[in-house]
């Protein structure tokens, strides 16, 4: 079985982003970039399936600027076999990402696609579902457990009320949630090995995909800042404040 993992290079989760003064977006220059944390979980899951003898090849795909090669290298050091970078400096919105990935899937014919449920930059939570729709494949979103069973895959999903398990016919798309696994750190020998692995670079045009944005960002603003309040001395003071100042308890 071949697994395709799609990853995104995003602002590191520890960075407190700042909105640009001209309100066109957030400040991205000189900001630490990393692999989207949910995508790290996706890479880890694919590697574990390969280690368990259930998968034979892991292809890592990313769409983005040249620098996204580094992110692909990280995934290769974790255990991916080879990479594909669909290189563009343009903004690629989720529907276009799904279309690009569909074109890659048609060339690569994987049996399973694993990707993060959401990128922590635009917080859209769309690509996996859109890709599944375009391919006509089933989707197992927000996965906390993935078990390959013959012609299908059982996916346990984190839903609002708890957990739900569904069974999907392969090929299928799975999007990862936080509890699926804990991604490994790449070892130094594996980082060295990853340098020799192949990364093919393609242009979106070569895949015949129009990536023109459908949504126009009119402005990006900072949300109203919440004022820090006061520290109270003890429980009695807290109860008094809640009853008589905030009036949120009776």
């Amino acid at each position: 079985m071949k697994i395709l993992v799609a990853i995104k290079r995003v602002v590191d989760f520890n960075v407190k982003v700042r909105v640009k003064a001209d309100k066109t977006g957030v400040e991205l220059s000189n900001v630490k970039m990393s692999m989207n944390p949910f995508d790290e979980i996706a890479v880890e899951e694919a590697v574990r399936l390969k280690e368990a003898g259930k998968a034979t090849e892991i292809v890592i795909v990313s769409i983005g600027p040249q620098a996204a090669q580094e992110t692909i290298r990280t995934a290769l050091a974790m255990g991916g076999d080879r990479g594909i970078l669909v290189q563009t400096d343009a903004e690629v919105q989720p529907l276009a990402v799904a279309k690009v990935l569909k074109a890659v899937v048609e060339k690569e014919s994987p049996n399973l696609i694993v990707l993060g449920k959401q990128a922590i930059d635009d917080d859209s939570n769309q690509v996996g579902q859109m890709l599944a729709a375009l391919l006509g494949w089933p989707q197992g979103t927000f996965a906390s457990k993935v078990a390959l069973e013959g012609e299908g895959v059982a996916v346990t999903r984190e839903v609002d009320g708890g957990l739900e398990t569904i069974n999907l016919k392969l090929p299928a798309v799975v999007t990862t949630d936080l509890r699926l696994n804990e991604p490994r750190y790449a070892s130094l020998p594996n980082i060295m090995k990853a340098k020799k692995k192949t990364i093919d670079t393609l242009a979106p045009d070569a895949l015949g995909v129009d990536v023109a944005p459908r949504l126009t960002t009119l402005k990006v603003e900072e949300p109203a800042k919440r004022q820090g309040g006061v520290k109270v001395a003890d429980v009695a003071a807290l109860v008094d404040k809640l009853k008589n100042e905030a009036k949120v308890i009776g």
């Binding site: 859209s124 769309q126 690509v127 859109m130 927000f142 609002d160 459908r214």
Partner: peptide
């Protein structure tokens, strides 16, 4: 979790963007 699961699938089938959340 139900809306987030199904609506992007609807959007892609209609070939339109989704505006999330």
């Amino acid at each position: 979790s139900a809306g987030k699961n199904v609506m992007p699938r609807v959007a892609a089938l209609l070939d339109v963007a989704q505006i999330s959340d």
